[in-house]
Design a protein around this nucleic acid. Structure first.
Lengths: 151, 151
DNA sequence: CTGAGTGCAAACGCTTTGCAGACAG
DNA sequence: CTGTCTGCAAAGCGTTTGCACTCAG
């Protein structure tokens, strides 16, 4: 967890904003969950412990932290999921979404480099290094399915 | 345009469904547009010429053609866009979405093969061959931006 | 004829917003 | 004190659904 209250407070003040308990709770809860969370799930958790906190506050906090670069959002399978940005050493990464179990895995940026280079060379398209979402079958769900993945 | 009325009618009958003017119009309009269209845009066009056609009919037709594999949907930048599946020789392809001008380009499947192979080898993840959406800057918008593509 | 498909309108789920009051600074 | 932020409640947006009627087959 890389955001202790003091650092966070300072960061917020730099941009002329405030550190409220709600924001701390929401960010903490997001950190605890670790992975990708929908607003609904996050609100469940937050609201479970602090019933006074409203859905709209969660939305606003998520949006707010997003603008600060502390939280990143990804649209996966129609739903919007949030995660703490730059978790640990992960830095940039892409998402592997299993279409079977819904699990979301990470791939480091560099695996994508070759592909991105070809995109640039052949199409003149400079791909963003993050927020790439790849759907498919994860290791567990893909086992014993044969080569049906291409069909 | 690869769907003349007779072929289409036959295809539908095979699955025990009907060919209605609404469906023809909606599919035709989608073909005319050529690229990626939102339901709103498609409805605009369809409804412009045939005011009696309802939004829900557009949704249902799109869903219906999707189930038949004639139309494919992709969630891009929070919006859902539709296109005729397997347009010409394109077959499987991925989407290059320019974050600047919003333009959507295509990349053939095979460019993705190496990346997919590494995903499979290193992560045991069998990527679906289509519906991959890559955000970035297209040739036009990327020009004159410096080499900041990685940062 | 028969029932798949349509138009209508209302419901739906997720997200945003206007407002008055609350509280961090 | 100031004005940012909150909770509430209601609106907004895109999408789905129940219903009676219509029309393709």
């Amino acid at each position: 967890m890389s955001h202790n209250s003091l650092d966070l407070a300072r960061t917020l003040h730099q941009s002329g904003h405030r550190l409220t308990p709600q924001r701390q709770i929401i960010l903490d809860t997001l950190c605890e969950t670790g992975g990708h969370v929908t607003v609904a799930e996050l609100y469940e958790r937050v609201h479970g412990r602090f019933p006074a906190i409203d859905r709209s506050t969660v939305y606003r906090a998520l949006d707010f932290f997003g603008a600060l670069g502390l939280v990143s959002a990804a649209g996966i399978g129609g739903a919007t999921v949030y995660e703490v940005a730059g978790q640990g050493e992960h830095g940039r990464h892409h998402h592997l979404v299993c279409r079977d179990c819904g699990d979301i895995g990470h791939v480091p940026d560099d695996l994508f480099d070759d592909f991105a280079a070809r995109l640039r060379d052949d199409y003149g398209f400079v791909a963003d290094a993050d927020s790439l979402t790849i759907s498919g079958l994860c290791r567990d769900c893909g086992v014993g399915r044969g080569e049906g993945g291409k069909g």
